[in-house]
Write a protein that binds this DNA or RNA. Structure first.
Lengths: 230, 230
DNA sequence: CACGAAACGAGAGCACTGCTCTCTCAACTC
DNA sequence: GAGTTGAGAGAGCAGTGCTCTCGTTTCGTG
């Protein structure tokens, strides 16, 4: 049904893609704040106003790039996970984390776009939620696999009283089959993973950590251990 | 010697402060990207070009704000630490972390300025390093105190072979009196703290974590436990 | 004290930005 | 084939960072 679309519709798809490609190029080269609609249009041989036929505003273009970035990151992580299919859960956990780190080092500006400060004045629409969840779901999957495997998860220390209801709620939302202690630890570890990546990427580790890959590997292994993997 | 400075010099100090204050106001209101030199000048009743007598560029203004932000955060954390002087190390650790979170929630745009994506194309000069280190030094201090206290630190799991030299180097740089396992865990925990804060601040926890304070408290307590505190 | 240097503020101007509006022309629909 | 819709061009608006020039004020020094 798509193949014999009108010439108009096909052109629209192509131009839209070309705009995103060029925008991504500029994003990679200069960062989000220097992404200029006019420059994109110029590079594509069009005039800036024509671009508004495809994206109603600069923010909408950025949203499109954000979604693509989440998907690109998610796909990287999922591929790495599949490639490690046979391994121990803890090793798969480390593999996924390293894929996140690798993608981030390869796409620093796109990382900044999705996990750095949200572009000021800009709040991401709901559309971005599912792609954004991919890495998280992957990590949940690793822990769930471990849980349903002989040996299972370590027993984690009990949650403090004040956190029990919240932990039950989070667990019910994300992974009802896992113990609340593990799900809570998982959410924390998920965010902490991005602390590690962000600090490396944004220079906070400069003159502090030199051998970044081994450091990262060790840190995320500890993180995995902390959610109950062995 | 400062009191009888020339009228010119005193005026310069005042105007410089006024510029920073107004810039901070705009930063808090709108975020870094919408901080406009012209708007600052306008608000102060000067013309934009006059502002360049005080800051050679917008980036330099931002740098000044970054340093102030680091200092403001550091001071918050230090004050909280002092207020908890008598407590157990682990409790002091949690207190410092909560002070970081509190300051960040109160100053989201300043947090974004220093720990979010670096303003694109911009790399912070060396001047920012000492203020940026304050929170880190505080955390090191807590762990060091614990180490030199009866009971001391937990014995941490041994480091992997590949990380030993790096861990020794980091420990020698930051805290030669602490075991390398602890210093390595400390650096990781330091970055992970900002993962937790950043995710809360930038909306990644929306519709996932609701009771943020208890969640955070628990997570950083685990973090402290992970560096050897008990 | 007076004079020249330095600091300061104002204003005009440049090149750039996101975005809007109007106009024309080609493609599609009925 | 006529009418509707979508695409691109161009001009224009308000805003940005930054530079340059030009009087004025202040200051250190001869």
């Amino acid at each position: 049904m798509n193949t014999a679309q009108g010439a108009r519709a096909r052109a629209r798809i192509e131009v839209t893609a070309a705009i995103k490609d060029e925008a991504r190029r500029q994003l990679a080269a200069e960062g989000a704040a220097k992404l200029s609609l006019r420059a994109v249009a110029r590079e594509l041989g069009m005039v800036s106003s024509a671009l508004y036929r495809y994206f109603p505003s600069r923010d909408e273009l950025l949203t499109a790039l954000i979604i693509d970035a989440y998907d690109s990151l998610g796909e990287s992580a999922e591929r790495a996970h599949e490639a490690a299919a046979g391994a121990e859960p803890l090793d798969r956990w480390v593999t996924v984390c390293e894929a996140v780190r690798g993608w981030s080092l390869d796409h620093p500006h796109e990382y900044a776009l999705i996990y750095g400060s949200p572009v000021p004045g800009y709040t991401a629409p709901q559309t971005t939620v599912p792609p954004a969840a991919r890495v998280g779901l992957l990590l949940i999957g690793v822990v769930r696999d471990a849980h349903h495997t002989p040996g299972g998860l370590r027993t984690l220390p009990p949650l403090p009283e004040e956190l029990r209801p919240e932990a039950d709620r989070i667990a019910a939302d994300l992974a009802p089959d896992l113990p609340p202690e593990a799900v809570t630890a998982l959410v924390a570890a998920w965010s902490q993973l991005y602390g590690l990546v962000g600090f490396e990427l944004f220079g906070q580790f400069n003159r502090v950590v030199e051998a970044r890959a081994p450091f990262f590997r060790h840190a995320v292994r500890q993180l995995g251990w902390g959610v109950g993997l062995r």
